[in-house]
Design a protein around this nucleic acid. Structure first.
Length: 493
RNA sequence: CGGGGCGUGGCGCAGCUCGGUAGCGCGACUGCUUUGGGAGCAGUAGGUCGUCGGUUCAAAUCCGGCCGCCCCGACCA
């Protein structure tokens, strides 16, 4: 029978788990907090990866690979970095197994490593150790490198895609001769993420600067894109860090500048992860399942032939013709001609999986020279002419892509409020959720107090031009102290 | 780490109070009938009941230990 999906209104968290499972994006593995990503989920990730990778290459970056295992001593080099990651590291201490006297397979106590190895939670340390060898002169700079990899962070509480102990991501690590250039790179990559989120994922984001409390361990400044999920909680969808000279100093990475002076290298790092899949689910999904933006959907169009007792050959032949026509046009199409499932079953199945367009083709349609087209985002059903179908499909895919973005943006606008007093702020956070713009005095004390009392955190200090009135000075209603502008608060994932 | 829930065919669950030869739904397989929104009937296969120990003539069931997973909270992409 149907995989049951709990309605969002009943239990949003359960809905999320149900949808991920029903759409077969991920399943639990035998190890807590790690997940298996079957093809439905992985193909989605591949499309994200390919889209981003193209943008990285277009901005001059090259891919490389650094090792999974990092000597523990490397982590001791940068103080903030250690503090940030020490509590969630998996550590390799032995290199051999053996069978003991009881026949049990155990870790061989004789095979202890001289120096424990940390399974990378992020790669700054191994990379800056390497860069210190690669860089001598200003002529060696900049270094613009990205790596696609898995990382491990031993999380206390995990959720599929949103927070798992092992996840897939990309991490960019760049080295620059000047502070200005590094800051520019940090901002540029945040723009890349913004473009990707909005144009590929159809997910509107806010760009901004993190407060010290939310900053990456070891960074001078952390920038982020924040997206609003349907339950009113914010999700950090990507981060870009200006690392200053912190890692260069920790790993003694210097270069000779044009004036023959020795200087520390300026650094950035930036990343997005499989968490984006969770963001996609919670941005566009509905009670029937996920809804995929056409640009990322592994299958953009599914074609379901309506088969009967006889005359199937004619239907299948016409279906194959349509399939070929769409494929030749560069559209990712799948003809589901399996006989063990009936059309109704397939219709439901592809709705759960979020395929943007479903076509159905039966004997009646063939007679009329049409095909039935159903949009996943709206459920709208229409008969369209087989003649000119490629153009119709292209237009519809574009319309779905744009429609998803518009809908998500409208949702965000409705759920973005301004609060000028603390009572209103607390009421909105508690009752409505969403983003709340409020003045903040800039102190960690006030930030911590608000978090303590409301569970809402400062998602970012938004870049100018995104919201009206965030740039005017005012008064922090919590402390009564002056504020330089309104910042974005929300409860977050 | 605190709170809650759960470990029984592939999946979801009942059975446990009151011990007595392990059951239901879905799925799978075979056959027939079906096929424009998750088909019907008939038949078949599939389980050391998480694990270790105890009580008993007899344990899925009672007692104890251990292990694991999920959900909710405190840290984090």
């Amino acid at each position: 029978m149907a995989d049951k999906i709990t309605p969002r209104s009943e239990d949003y968290a359960q809905w999320y788990v149900d949808v991920v499972r029903a759409a077969r994006l991920a399943e639990y593995s035998p190890v807590r907090g790690s997940m298996i990503i079957p093809p439905n989920g992985y193909e989605l990730w591949e499309n994200m990866r390919d889209g981003l990778d193209g943008m990285f290459k277009a901005t001059g970056h090259r891919n490389a690979y650094f090792p999974l295992l990092i000597p523990i001593s490397f982590f001791a080099r940068e103080a903030d970095h250690v503090d940030g990651f020490a509590k969630e590291c998996a550590v390799v201490t032995h290199h051999r197994l053996m069978v003991d006297a009881d026949g049990e397979l155990i870790v061989d106590p004789e095979a202890k490593l001289e120096e424990p190895l940390v399974v990378r939670p992020t790669s700054e340390t191994i990379i800056w150790d390497t860069y210190s060898k690669w860089i001598q002169s200003w002529r060696d700079l900049p270094i613009l490198i990205n790596q696609w990899a898995n990382v491990v962070r031993w999380e206390m509480r995990t959720r599929l895609f949103l927070r798992t102990s092992e996840f897939l991501w990309q991490e960019g690590h760049t080295a620059h001769a000047t502070e200005e250039e590094a800051v520019e790179e940090t901002r540029k990559m945040l723009d890349v993420y913004t473009t990707f989120a909005e144009e590929w994922m159809a997910m509107p984001v806010i760009r901004g600067l993190k407060t010290a409390a939310e900053r990456f361990a070891g960074a001078v400044d952390t920038y982020c894109i924040e997206a609003l999920m349907q339950d009113g909680k914010s999700l950090q969808a990507g981060t870009s860090h200006f690392l200053g000279q912190n890692f260069a100093k920790a790993f003694d990475c210097t270069f000779q500048n044009r004036n023959n002076e020795l200087e520390y290298v300026w650094a950035t790092s930036w990343g997005v992860s499989t968490r984006l899949i969770g963001a996609l689910v919670m941005t566009h999904g509905d009670d029937k399942g996920i809804v995929l933006p056409p640009k990322l959907a592994p299958t953009q169009v599914v074609l379901v032939p309506i088969l009967r007792k006889d005359g199937n050959e004619a239907v299948l032949e016409a279906a194959r013709k349509i399939e070929q026509m769409l494929r030749d046009a560069g559209i990712r199409v799948f003809l589901d001609d399996r006989e063990q499932y009936r059309p109704g079953w397939k219709f439901t199945e592809y709705e759960v999986q979020g395929v943007p367009i479903r076509l159905a083709l039966g004997p009646r349609d063939i007679e009329n020279g049409v095909v039935e087209l159903v949009r996943r985002d709206s459920g709208e059903k229409q008969s369209v002419a087989t003649e000119g179908l490629v153009e119709t499909i292209r237009k519809t895919l574009d319309a779905v892509q744009q429609g998803l973005f518009d809908r998500a943006k409208a949702f965000r606008e409705v759920h973005t409020n301004t609060a000028d007093d603390y009572e209103t702020f607390q009421r909105i956070i508690e009752e409505e959720g969403g983003f709340v713009l409020m003045h903040w005095d800039g102190t960690a004390e006030t930030e911590a107090r608000i978090k303590e009392e409301t569970k809402a955190t400062i998602r970012c200090l938004p870049f100018p031009g995104q919201f009206e009135g965030t740039e005017e000075p005012g008064v922090d209603p919590v402390s009564g102290q002056p504020s330089k502008g309104r910042v974005v608060f929300a409860r977050a994932y």
